[in-house]
Design a binder for these strands. Structure first.
Lengths: 223, 223
DNA sequence: ACCCCTTTGTGTTAAATGTACACAGTTAAT
DNA sequence: ATTAACTGTGTACATTTAACACAAAGGGGT
């Protein structure tokens, strides 16, 4: 057996699918590659993990420095260690989902010269570089499972929200349609949310009541 | 910013909680440390990941070479990248659960001089080295979620099994007791298993019918 | 002021699922 | 034959889910 200490050195990258609600649509934040290979294709944000930081630290830094985003709720999703994900280097990818509310998402910084970003509807993803399409798909699948087993969506709706807004988010992520009355009944009897007493004035039609998530909720199956 | 390529070299270890059914008990396979630090404490099996293999390959190799076990069903659980997990080195741990049926588990090799192994009931875990107790706990928690969202337990029961055996496995992992009639009704109406027509002779009491899992079952919530 | 359009809020019924519960059947051992 | 140990089975009740239609509140145009 050859002794080659270098063989135990691995390069890790973090990749995060940051979701938010934008005008009633569930969207994910992608970056556009400006150099070869895959110039013009889109990638997930992330960074190379150094050995003096945790993966979460790395992601938080990457997000804040490159994108200006703060207060992203993170959850670990999956590791991709197959040898052929990048033809040039052997890099292990650690993927996370990130959830950010629509107010905080507004503080995303303007694109720099070297970075072009855009929010994409999760049903309408552009051409992606490397294996990022596969990773994003897995992340969306993870989010899908997550929202039926927990109330993580409260990270997308920290401020007051309406039940139709919440329902639309569920419908997009789960790719189904739901009955408005049953959805409402479900969430109210679950006790996850509370009526704030206010109404969402200004839109079309009858104003919707505003709700907010309660704080101290433990996880449970929702659907 | 200092340029230090070495800072992007990370050491990864795989750690796997291998579960099986042994005499009606759900057990996990642990190794005993024979050298300092933590001599005499128990650890999860695993290995250092080299940069020419996937994590799954590393685990499969580790399990086979050190333990002689084959055909372990693996599923990724969690990554632990906090900086203080090992006071000496910065090692990132990637944890998996492994499920092996009671027949294959019999082929575990005898302990070598440098390796002592033992199966422990999941409710009765010994003193563990490093942060392995925490990791094992997370893995058991993961298994718990998994068995209510899928029929992974079929990896523990590939050959014919009885419904009371299956029920006991669920009860131990979920740490609950269940009604025999309702459990039976549930599993039979779910259509996950089928009666083989044989009976489990030789034990105490009335012989139980033998069942086996059907093959082509897609995932769904069980409980 | 009135009408129209759009969107939200609400209750009931039937079906399916989950839960609680007690006794008879089969084998081995004495 | 009796006992001990364990497995198999059905029914009634409670809970949850699923389907479904109309009234209420606001905005805009006339």
């Amino acid at each position: 057996m050859d002794f080659n200490p270098g063989k135990y050195y691995n390069i890790l990258e973090s990749l995060v699918s940051i979701f938010t609600i934008d005008q009633g649509q569930v969207k994910v934040l992608l970056l556009r590659k400006k150099s070869e290979p895959y110039r013009g294709y889109w990638i997930l944000p992330g960074g190379i993990v150094s050995n003096d930081e945790t993966i979460e630290m790395n992601i938080i830094d990457s997000i804040e420095v490159k994108l200006g985003l703060k207060d992203v709720y993170l959850e670990q999703c999956h590791i991709f260690s197959n040898l052929d994900r990048d033809p040039d280097d052997r890099i292990i990818a650690i993927s996370y989902i990130g959830l950010i509310d629509n107010v905080s998402a507004l503080f995303k910084r303007e694109d720099r010269d070297d970075i072009q970003t855009a929010w994409f509807k999760i049903g309408d993803i552009p051409k992606m570089a490397y294996d990022h399409a596969r990773i994003l798909k897995k992340n969306i699948e993870f989010l899908r499972r997550k929202i039926v087993n927990s109330n993580v969506l409260k990270s997308l709706f920290p401020s007051d929200f309406t039940l139709p807004e919440l329902q639309k988010a569920y419908e997009q992520i789960l790719n189904v349609t739901m009955d408005r009355r049953n959805f409402r009944k479900k969430f109210i009897t679950l006790g996850l949310i509370e009526d704030t007493g206010d109404k969402n004035v200004g839109g079309n039609g009858r104003p919707a009541k505003l709700y907010s998530f309660k704080e101290d909720i433990k996880e449970r199956n929702l659907f």
